[in-house]
Design a protein around this nucleic acid. Sequence first.
DNA 1: TTTATTAATCGTAAAATTACGATTAATAAA
DNA 2: TTTATTAATCGTAATTTTACGATTAATAAA
Lengths: 104, 104
Amino acid sequence: MADYSNKEAQIAVYAKALAHPARVAIIQLLLKKQTCICGAIVEELPLSQSTVSQHLKELKLAGLIKGDIAGVKTCYCIDKVEWNKAKKLLTGLFSMTFKKENCC
Amino acid sequence: MADYSNKEAQIAVYAKALAHPARVAIIQLLLKKQTCICGAIVEELPLSQSTVSQHLKELKLAGLIKGDIAGVKTCYCIDKVEWNKAKKLLTGLFSMTFKKENCC
DNA sequence: TTTATTAATCGTAAAATTACGATTAATAAA
DNA sequence: TTTATTAATCGTAATTTTACGATTAATAAA
């Protein structure tokens, strides 16, 4: 009956950001690669430039990444502070202990 | 250009399941509570019975929970095996190390 | 200055999500 | 058997997401 907690809402925001394989792929790319130029990301994905741009926008909206315009190109990278918040919340959820054996 | 990996796709499936505060709340409830009767879950959420049922269906579809019909009621609980798979994939993603300092 | 490159945004269509009330099917209780 | 309870499903409307091509704005290169 009560409303959701901030924590629950924020977990949902981060989870939603990772709720599409393209965005998961982008995040992994940014974690691994030396470069984070938008064009390179587009090349790695089976999607058009505009669609990739949209996914980048969503990740940016959730706070997980940030973009830095460098001339004609844009350099993306993980926002470490926000990423660690997400890590804390998500791993926190998954590290909760089961209070009882399954009832089902 | 290539397609997504199974891993990326599966991470997205689990993340999508957690991409709504109501479903995060349900999962937390099932992790904490002694009881997991559908009616009790409905009472805890600011949503109608049918909407909660829909969210339960989505969580079940992602594999994270299972339901056991017990007479007129239905008892829900976390699917531990699947939950641990999700835990492994998600915490795996978040434990990836940064290969370089931020470029932005 | 003109041309090319890069990435964001616009416009749009199709599909998916979210929410609800109403109905249904199944079991339990009277 | 009749009535009540529970939860799934149906039907539906509103919103959001996803995807693309086309256009735009900005910078770089010729």
